[in-house]
Structure formats: C-alpha cells, structure tokens
Design a protein around this nucleic acid. Structure first.
Lengths: 218, 218
DNA sequence: ATTTAGATTGAACGACTGTTAAAAATAGGG
DNA sequence: CCCTATTTTTAACAGTCGTTCAATCTAAAT
C-alpha cells in the first residue's frame, strides 16, 4: 500500500554477503508464500528457511505485504522480457499465427516453471495465488497486465471478428489452465491413475496449446 | 485427519435455534475461507461474522481443519446430485454429445455460483482454493472426484481415440477455467476495460462451453 | 588503518492465534 | 412444569503473529 515515496540514497554499495542474504530471504519467501499462501507463511518461517534472524526479513523486505509484492515482481521482469522477445522473434520470422502468439506467452512460462529449477517452480504457484485473489489485483496489474495487453492486441488482430470481451475472457481461461499445470498436477495424476497409457508430462505444453488454440478459435 | 470414529448418540434433537446458529457459523466460515483462505480467516473473525462467541465455532465445527472440510462438504453433495441428475436426464433425452456432457458438469456450477445467492458465490471461490492447494487433496478426492470420474468416463466414451491421461489433463484445464469465473472476473474486466462492446457476463457459460468443447476436440 | 554506513542479532512489544474448561442459559422430552 | 442434555457464554491457556529498537558485527570508502 505505502510505496516508498522517495528512495533514500545509499552512501555505500551493498556487500556481496548482504546481497546473497537478501536473495536467500526472497527465495525462502517465494517458496513459503507459494506453498502456504500469504497468511499461511509467517515471517519467522521465512527467516528460519533462510537461516537468518526474523528482524532481518523486515529489514530487507519491509512489511510482509511489501515483501510479497517484491518477491512477485522479482522474476516478473525477466518473464515479461522473455515473452516479449519470443513474440518479437516470431514476428520477425514470418507471419504470425494464433498458435504462435499463444506459444510465445505460454512456452516461456512452462519452460521456466517446469524445467527451471525449484525456485521457478515455486514462482509458478506463487503467481497462481496472485491470479486468483483479488487482494493482489494491483500486483497483477503492474507486473503482468502490460505484457498481457500486448498479447491481447496480437490475438485481436488475428481474430478480428471476436469482441475484446470475449478475447479477454478466453485469455483468462488460458492463463487459468496454464497455472493449473503448476498447482493441480496432483489432481490430473489422481484422476488419471489406474488408467493405462504413457505419461504425458513431457508434452504438456503442446497439450495446453492444443486446448487453448482450439478454444480461441471456437 | 481424525474423523470421528464413532458418532456419539444424541439423546435429544437439536433445537431449531442451534441449527440456525450452526448454519450461520458455516455461512460465515464459507464466506471468510473463500475471501482470505484457510489461514487468512481466523476463528474469531468467523465468530464475529456469525455473531456468536468464539468457542461456539469450535463446538459446532470442531477443529479449524474439520470446520473447513465440513463447509466444503456441505454443498458438495447437492452439487454432485444436480450434476448427476443433469447427466442422467441428458442420457434419457437422446444420444449424448461432448458439449452436452460438459454442460451437465459446468452449467449447474455456474448457475449456482453466479445466480444462486451470496453463499453459493462464496462457495465457488472456496472450491477454487481446494482445487489449487494440494493440502486439500483429500477433500477434493472425497467431495468431487467421484462425480468427476463419472463424467470422465462419458467423455472417454465420446472420444475413444483420446488417452485417459489427455482427457484428465483437459478436464483439469476445464475446471480451472470454470473456477476462474469465480475468482478472476476482476481480471477479465480489467483486461477488457476501455474496449467497446457489450458486456458478456450473461453468456459466460456458453463462452466457457465453446472454449472447452473445442479444446477437448483438439 | 580508520571511520562509519549498513547488515545482523537478540530481545521485547502488544495483539492475535486455536483450543479448552467451567459456568450459565436454553429448550427438548417426560 | 421439571429435569437435564445441549447450547452458549465467559475466561483463560500457551503459543505465534508482525514489527520495532538498541546493541553488535561486518565491510565499503577514504
């Protein structure tokens, strides 16, 4: 709520150690916020996981709400950059297709959250919280909506007959389905268990793209 | 975790007043769990909303976890019944189509959560928590998976070429998109705002059905 | 090497947490 | 109406919560 009105000037560069500690705290916060939600993860839990004293979490992250927002924003910039670069590359390579546009949005996210290490995996579940809780609306708006709107415009160009409302709704459907790969894999496995057949965790990206491309074209 | 091994026999019927209080407590718990999640809603918050003393919440609901499970299960039975009746009716009316099967699953939920009063609206968001948090896996399994598996079988019959794994994944995509209508309408509106066009909150059910039917057929 | 900004610790604050026990009020069954 | 099972209140328990403050330690800048 209360962003720093005026960033106080530092008189010294932060030490390597303090920067490492800072990242350790943010990693721990990311993990615990993702697993247990905002109120489910306590500052002391986070401090314990980061192997620091509780007060240090407030020192580096400010209030708990500010810490949450910082942790979400930390990787959002990289994610947005990758997505926009993929879109620019696709545009440069040739005429856009709907599937290509959707892929530029989905593939970077899935690649990171499913194959990008434990912290990115936690980040995926963290974003799911932001996406389904109106209390974090301002975070979603600042961190993700600018990039989303870029993709919405591309989709609108490719589907000129479809109203913006419909496209927005379909896009939220797609984001929800995408995030379900981070939050609800246990559900998929539980529902499919006992049924013979190969595991398709490998091509879940293609699966999701098939589903959403067809959905948008409906 | 610890279900009552042996339901102690009552020696008197519960009074009308106590039953009403019980429902008021469950309604308040439903509302607050939906809004703030499990740890975000305190027993005292719930008691205040239900206009009772805190200890009474434990008296009627048991532990906080048991209360949560009870509140989820309370409407799950009715929802499952409506869904299964709709499916049976559709089967009786004529040959099933994919869209018809999906509609029997989606339409009852949307009708209730979007037009079924404030408590059902909260229930939709509550289920979204259960669906995205592995900690509530046992609740999802007991309350919803039996009915889901019934629908999965119908879909598998209509799509004999598609593997059970794929169908399960698509079904989870669909459920996620469905729940996004309870949790993320603010996101849809925010992304569509500024764009001209009629509001389509009326036919969101049809919108969702179009999207998912096409997705399943991909 | 010295200075001192910044990082880290340890302890404490008041408020709130879930839960329990006993007392008091209510109302079903006779 | 009477008895008492059940509901409801009141009070308290032992912890945990987010946050703050002063003291101590570390290391950047000179």
């Amino acid at each position: 709520m209360t962003g720093k009105v005026q960033e106080e000037q530092r008189q010294r560069a932060p030490s390597k150690r303090s920067l490492a500690t800072r990242e350790r705290i943010f990693d721990a916060a990311e993990q615990l916020f993702a697993e247990r939600g905002f109120e489910g993860a306590s500052i002391r839990d986070i401090a314990r996981a980061a192997e620091v004293q509780g007060a240090l979490v407030n020192h580096h992250g400010g209030s708990k709400e500010a810490l949450f927002a910082t942790v979400v924003a930390r990787r959002a910039e990289e994610l947005s950059r990758i997505r926009q670069e993929a879109l620019a590359q696709a545009k440069a390579d040739g005429p856009l297709t709907l599937r290509l546009v959707l892929s530029c949005f989905i593939a970077p996210f899935i690649d990171k959250t499913l194959n990008g290490g434990e912290t990115w995996s936690a980040y995926g579940r963290l974003i799911a919280h932001v996406s389904s809780d109106q209390r974090w609306q301002h975070i979603a708006q600042t961190c993700f909506d600018p990039t989303v709107k870029l993709f919405l415009e591309e989709v609108a160009t490719l589907l000129p007959e479809t109203s913006p409302q419909k496209i927005s709704a379909h896009f939220v459907f797609m984001v929800s389905a995408m995030l379900s790969l981070c939050t609800s894999r246990w559900r998929m496995n539980g529902l499919a268990q006992g049924a013979a057949g190969r595991d398709l965790t490998q091509d879940l990206t293609a699966e999701l793209l098939d589903f959403c491309e067809a959905g948008f074209k409906s």
